[in-house]
């Protein structure tokens, strides 16, 4: 379950949609998790992972190193969609991340915990926590981190929205957990030749503009009672980018 301090961070993220919101959440999240650095990196098409918010210089330089070298636990987490935890980097097989591990001395990072930001096959980035000492995460810290990664995923998915006037739509409904929404996302992605991430946004934008629950709409799409049209504002397929 989620700790009290992380619950506060999640509430803050939900209410604050300012540009600095993620930076503030990273700083508060680092304190809640008792880590020396917390970083958010987004997946960019060509260049791999790009840091967008870092709570400390340590976090920043570790993210930069992974970004430059193109390898590291964060890169693995983003690519495989699985959580990657390394309790002690000095015990890691040298061939796992040969370039990064050689830089360790200068980076002052001993343990690292990377959580993919993803909704099924929609992968948008990774949340990474670092500590100066060898350590493990408690079950509560694991849950806290997963919840924070999920909240950031929601936030970035919303800000990727290219349809205007949905600033109030930052939060996904609870019903997003329903299978039918993911099925409809897959169908719309084929119909409109969009990546899954954009198909989901299209689905959501349509739900908001028509004022219908997204689950009802998804049912109509899956049962072929509704088909979204590629409207004039349709954009060429592209991968998620930061705003």
């Amino acid at each position: 379950m989620i700790s009290e301090s992380m619950t506060k961070v999640l509430c803050f993220l939900e209410e604050d949609d300012s540009a600095g919101g993620v930076d503030a959440a990273a700083a508060a999240g680092a304190a809640a998790l008792d880590v020396s650095g917390l970083a958010v990196s987004l997946t960019a098409t060509e260049s791999g992972l790009e840091p967008v918010a870092c709570s400390s210089d340590t976090a920043r330089s570790f993210e930069d190193a992974q970004f430059t070298l193109g390898e590291g636990p964060g890169v693995n987490a983003a690519r495989t969609g699985t959580v990657v935890c390394v309790g002690d980097l000095t015990n890691e097989r040298p061939d796992r991340w040969p370039l990064l591990l050689r830089e360790l001395m200068g980076l002052r990072v001993r343990s690292v915990f990377c959580f993919p930001m993803a909704l099924g096959a929609i992968r948008i980035g990774v949340l990474s926590a670092t500590r100066h000492t060898a350590s493990r995460f408690t079950p509560e810290q694991m849950d806290d981190s997963l919840a924070l990664a999920a909240a950031l995923t929601t936030r970035y998915l919303a800000t990727m929205d290219e349809v205007p006037d949905h600033a109030d739509a930052l939060d996904f409904p609870e019903s997003l957990e329903h299978a039918v929404i993911h099925q409809a996302t897959g169908m719309v992605s084929v119909q409109l030749e969009l990546p899954l991430s954009q198909a989901l946004l299209r689905l959501r934008a349509h739900a908001y503009s028509t004022g219908r629950p997204i689950t009802d709409m998804a049912h109509d799409i899956v049962n072929r009672r509704l088909r979204l049209s590629p409207t004039g504002d349709s954009t060429p397929p592209s991968l998620p980018v930061k705003d």
């Binding site: 969609g81 993919p116 993803a118 909704l119 099924g120 096959a121 929609i122 299978a179 039918v180 993911h182 099925q183 409809a184 996302t185 897959g186 169908m187 719309v188 992605s189 084929v190 119909q191 899954l196 899956v222």
Partner: peptide
């Protein structure tokens, strides 16, 4: 849990194709 969501997304993709 992530795999489960991927599976639903793929059902949709295939259903439409």
């Amino acid at each position: 849990l992530t795999s489960r969501i991927i599976l639903e997304q793929v059902k949709g993709i295939l259903a439409e194709r």
